[in-house]
Design a protein around this nucleic acid. Structure first.
Length: 1049
RNA sequence: GGGCGGUUAGCUCAGUUGGCUAGAGCGCCACGUUGACAUCGUGGAGGUCGUUGGUUCAAGUCCAAUACCGCCCACCA
């Protein structure tokens, strides 16, 4: 069969890969051909990955680029391996984060708050924001070359996901695994919502430490008149319901002292002084203060009361271990409703929990005369009033760590609020079991520990958020003042026409205020009736409202919907073809900071909803750090837009660079630089300049804008990109590959397809087949085992140092010979084809571009059987060469050649012989070695401008020559008329020193009797190499003597 | 306070079960551009593997202690 192929001239193919043109063209082609669309009626085995949905708060940065590159490399390999590969894309609504961004924008641009707009209008604005950023994110993914099935793109707040959320919530509600209760939450008074612990950061601020005195009621003689307490938040005293003292202060002090002594024993000299002084202070405290603490403890056990000043409310003195006798006065005021620790004390001691704050941060009726003041205003007044009463002891300045909301940057107020919870006992256990019994495998395994530790706490999951953006909780409630109301409400609900127990579930939440009289005073309901409604029952929802119930306003924690992601995206709870085909998914790739928040919850929700784990393998990949070792994030100003990198280096370089950097233990440190758009000068991003809206270029002095530009004037400046030099390696590699294929294009004219006869294979062909077989097998294993950097490194070394530097060079001679040319063309087309396919997952664009060119010249390729190449490399079969081609003898033969070649090059370089000057050389060796080198002998001419003129044990040494002694042979380079005696002496002396060092090491080892006894095999090997080294040394010394004599003559 | 990871060449990182002279890329030095590639080629210089101690015939590798850097969790009236 013949294929008349067109021909390429050098000018037809640029010597640099035009990635920008190729990316646009190829993305379009992939899209049109729907290569990445997975179908449900396939015979192929499925392989599914769901994307960790990026937040629609903003655009993707390099951390996402890493995450998505790794997923794409895996899914692309699996697709080529013949799996029905689905990579499910989508985005996350990211509840509070997104709402906060939009609210901030609203405030900045229009000076409005969300209340000015109202719920509906705000939510619409957020949807607009979401549309904008979802588009941007999906575009970024496409530009990166991600082979997602974009036709299936989901959003955690879309109709499909919403249905899954409703079903899950209903199911858990019905199982009594969701309940409403009071909980101390981190209240953001600015946003009017609770925020989770991980959305709170501690800000160091200058604050004060106030010392108060609370009067003792009816002090007996000998008893103190006051108890001393201290606080950093004086206004909370209005909610105090006790003062605590340690139950056994003496023992507690013993314990503290024992700990200090232990610390002292192992302390360094510099620490000793400080520890010793602490012990001193402790001893003094024991003498002066302990009796008083014991007295207070006894008073507490007697049930004595204190008078809370300002509100004149009697509060008990209680014993609790939370009070530390070694600190302050040893007594601590307890504000259960406004402090997490006090809350715990309150529960232990069954204290009243008095909530003194409204949702907006003002004080409520419980604060008596202070009602209506903001917490901060109340602080000053409380302090002033206490001072007026003579109950302010002192004020200290102190640095305090103020819990602050990450979203609104305002101080957090701990606040007791009604919240919905998921009961985690059983659910956590199921997720723990999945990992401990190996159904879910976390890689690297060390991360299993943080997963298990966190789940084992089994803390109930607060899922309600006082936000407008999110899944509104599907519960309709009614508060009932009397038991009769409750009964009546229940009866009425059950009688509703649309009511039935399969679509609605009822819970009755009793009031937690046990004291009936107090409950009435506070106007609290006796009980609240909650009805949870299954999705798709709008008529019942309407009837419930008509029956006087109101819908819960809160929305769900964004992680609630994220937890369903692996099955909600596939259409659960419907029994879809997608669910049966693609669930459970095959692997999850994510970053370590959401192991607990997300991975654990996906496992337990998958088990709860689908009765099956969501994925058998989880890969936790490294994080991208900036040049200072800090994680990248938009808020720090060190986030880099992958598009900047793509524009400068190309998507393949970004991807290959990412894969190459993805090792198992190290985070990826990526020093980034600004690139001046005017003069292309690059300079470091520093802590100081990275958040400036505009910068002057240090070289050309012109200004350019950054991602931080806000003002129109700044935005009008040309935008400077931020990239990293670390992608240059990958960019060069892409170009190298492009040029290797350019060589192929220029030499495939007249290509005819035919199987390659085994008898026609040369040594180098067999070597290439052997290497291709080994490399493809290793790369497959590496990618399957998430060892991306290993895979990238092996491919890089193979493609550059073996394929390009040796094989292609050798083919040049064969192309020059008309007889060998057709065969050389076939084997080149075949091996390039294989190499491209191996590189496709990491570098899909350049390999596709070359693939399409190759198809024009050599549409049919193959080795044992010839076939047309696939229409796209994305769907071509993954190389899986028979391991029978792996041939250690051939590889050894090749390495002999490489050693000889390097030796000749070394001589040429040290003798400073011009490239064009041909040299002659001989190889003195055993006949066996000569036989091995013989078939490759011709290539020395092309690759080192050296002609092999003789080989064997008896070659005659030329008059003037350089000798390179290697274990297997000696290379004798004829330097007649070229010799530089001094350089040669220098080289030989260096060689001699190296050999002597090596020999000494070997002799030392062999002189070690225990070693020889323990490892006889190894010792024998060393003995052989020692003998060779000694022979080499003799040769070198002889040659050196000769040159020394020449110099002295 | 608890846990985890890191420390190897000027920079960024490899180094499999301990074993012969510890590797790569970038950067640096020298030489080299008429047919794939200067985003290239060839050669070279550069490391007492954080520190201390231990196990072993043998330690970058195993153990212990310690310093520094980073991350996670808990806590700080």
């Amino acid at each position: 069969m013949t294929n008349e192929s067109p021909s390429f001239k050098p000018e037809d193919i640029p010597s640099r890969f035009d990635f920008s043109e190729a990316q646009t063209r190829i993305t379009k082609m992939w899209d049109e051909c729907r290569y990445f669309h997975a179908v449900t009626d396939s015979d192929k085995q499925p392989f599914t990955i769901v994307i960790p949905p990026p937040n629609v708060t903003g655009a993707l940065h390099l951390g996402h680029a890493l995450n998505n590159t790794l997923q794409d490399v895996l899914i692309r390999m699996k697709r080529m391996q013949g799996f029905n590969a689905l990579w499910m894309p989508g985005t996350d609504h990211a509840g509070i984060a997104t709402q906060a961004v939009v609210e901030r924008r609203l405030k900045e641009d229009e000076g409005k708050t969300r209340h000015d707009l109202g719920r509906e209008a705000l939510v619409k604005r957020i949807w607009d924001w979401k549309d904008q950023y979802e588009r941007r994110i999906l575009d970024q993914l496409k530009q990166m070359g991600c082979s997602c099935d974009f036709e299936r793109t989901r959003f955690t707040l879309d109709e499909t996901c919403t249905k899954a959320v409703r079903f899950t919530f209903f199911d858990l509600f019905k199982k009594q695994l969701i309940y409403r209760g009071k909980r101390l939450v981190n209240w953001d008074t600015h946003l009017g919502t609770a925020v989770s612990d991980d959305e709170v950061f501690a800000e160091k601020v200058k604050g004060q430490f106030w010392h108060f005195m609370y009067p003792v009621i009816d002090p007996q003689s000998g008893e103190p008149a006051h108890v001393h307490v201290a606080t950093t938040r004086p206004e909370t005293m209005l909610g105090d319901t006790a003062v605590a003292v340690h139950p056994d202060p003496s023992k507690a002090l013993d314990k503290v002292e024992a700990d200090l002594q232990e610390k002292l024993a192992g302390a360094t000299a510099s620490d000793r002084e400080s520890i010793e002084s602490q012990i001193e202070a402790l001893k003094e405290r024991r003498e002066t203060y302990l009796p008083k603490l014991i007295q207070l403890r006894d008073m507490a056990l007697d049930g004595r009361m204190l008078m809370l000043p300002l509100l004149d409310r009697p509060i008990p003195l209680v014993v609790d271990e939370w009070a530390k006798p070694e600190l302050g006065s040893g007594c601590v005021k307890i504000t259960p409703a406004h402090d997490p620790n006090d809350y715990e004390v309150g529960k232990r001691c069954e204290l009243e929990m008095i909530n003194i704050m409204n949702r907006d941060g003002t004080l409520n009726i419980e604060a008596g005369p202070y009602e209506g003041l903001y917490m901060k205003q109340a602080r000053g007044k409380v302090v002033d009033d206490l001072e007026a009463l003579g109950l302010l002891e002192k004020i200290e300045d102190r640095e305090i760590e103020l819990p602050t909301s990450d979203r609104s940057k305002t101080p957090i107020e701990p606040f007791l609020a009604d919240q919905w919870f998921v009961s985690m006992d059983q659910l956590s256990q199921s997720a723990m079991d999945a990992v401990t019994d190996g159904r879910v495998n976390i890689h690297p395994p060390r991360y299993s520990r943080s997963y298990l530790d966190w789940l084992s706490e089994k803390r109930d999951w607060p899922v309600s958020r006082q936000l407008w953006w999110g899944h509104q909780i599907p519960v309709w409630s009614r508060a009932c003042a009397e038991q009769a109301d409750v009964d009546q409400a229940l009866e009425k609900i059950k009688a509703l026409p649309a009511f039935n127990e399969t679509v609605a579930s009822i819970q009755v939440e009793p009031c937690d205020e046990q004291d009936d009289q107090r409950r009435r005073q506070l106007d609290l309901p006796l009980a609240t009736v909650h009805v949870c409604v299954q999705a798709g029952n709008e008529s019942l929802e309407q009837e419930l409202i008509e029956a006087g119930l109101t819908r819960e306003e809160d929305v769900l924690d964004t992680w609630f919907s994220s937890a369903l992601w692996p099955h909600s995206t596939l259409g659960w709870p419907e029994a879809t073809a997608e669910m049966s085909t693609f669930y459970p998914t095959s692997a999850l790739l994510t970053s370590r900071d959401i192991i607990t928040l997300w991975v654990g919850r996906m496992v337990l929700m998958g088990l709860n909803n689908c009765n099956e784990i969501p994925f058998p393998r989880v890969f936790i990949h490294p994080k991208i750090l900036d040049g200072f070792g800090k994680t990248m994030s938009k808020s720090k100003g060190n986030g880099v837009d992958p598009i900047d990198v793509i524009n400068k280096f190309g998507a393949d370089s970004l991807r290959f660079g990412m894969a190459r950097l993805c090792t198992e233990t190290q985070d990826v440190r990526l020093p980034v630089k600004f690139a001046c758009p005017h003069c292309e000068h690059t300079f470091d991003q520093t802590v100081k300049n990275r958040i400036l809206p505009k910068l002057p270029c240090p070289k050309c002095k012109k200004e350019f804008s950054t991602q931080w530009a806000v003002e129109e004037a700044d935005k009008a400046l040309e935008r400077g990109s931020v990239t990293s030099e670390r992608f240059e390696v990958a960019r060069n590699f892409v170009n190298k590959l492009w040029n290797a294929s350019r060589f192929a294009m220029l030499n495939l004219e007249g290509y005819t397809a035919a199987p390659i006869e085994e008898s026609e294979l040369t040594v180098e062909d067999r070597w290439m087949l052997s290497r291709l077989s080994t490399v493809s097998s290793n790369v497959t294993k590496s990618i399957d085992g998430f060892q991306y950097s290993e895979a990238a490194r092996e491919l890089y070394d193979f493609a550059w140092s073996e394929f390009c530097s040796f094989y292609v060079e050798m083919l040049k001679d064969r192309f020059a010979d008309a007889a060998q040319r057709p065969h050389a063309q076939r084997i080149l087309a075949y091996s390039l084809d294989c190499l491209l396919r191996l590189l496709q997952p990491m570098m899909p664009f350049v390999t596709e571009a070359i693939w399409q060119n190759l198809a024009k010249l050599a549409p049919e390729r193959g080795f044992t059987n010839v076939q047309p190449g696939a229409s796209s490399i994305s769907i071509a079969p993954w190389p899986a060469l028979d391991s029978g081609w792996q041939d250690a003898a051939i590889e050894e033969q090749f390495s002999l050649y490489q050693t000889a070649l390097a030796a000749i090059r070394e001589v040429r370089s040290s003798q400073n012989i011009a490239n064009k000057t041909k040299v002659k050389f001989l190889v003195r060796c055993e006949p066996k070695i000569a036989t091995m080198l013989e078939p490759l002998g011709g290539y020395f001419s092309r690759m080192a401008a050296a002609d092999l003129v003789g080989m064997g044990p008896d070659v005659v040494q030329p008059e003037t020559n350089a000798v390179l002694a290697k274990p297997e042979f000696e290379i004798l380079v004829d330097l007649e008329g070229l010799i530089d005696v001094e350089s040669e002496i220098t080289r030989l002396e260096k060689e001699k020193a190296n050999l002597e060092k090596s020999i000494a090491g070997k002799q030392r080892q062999l002189g070690n009797e225990k070693f020889v006894a323990a490892k006889p095999d190894l010792a024998a090997e060393i003995e052989i190499s020692l003998k060779q080294a000694e022979e080499q040394l003799q040769t070198i010394i002889a040659s050196l003597d000769k040159f020394l004599a020449k110099r002295n003559a």
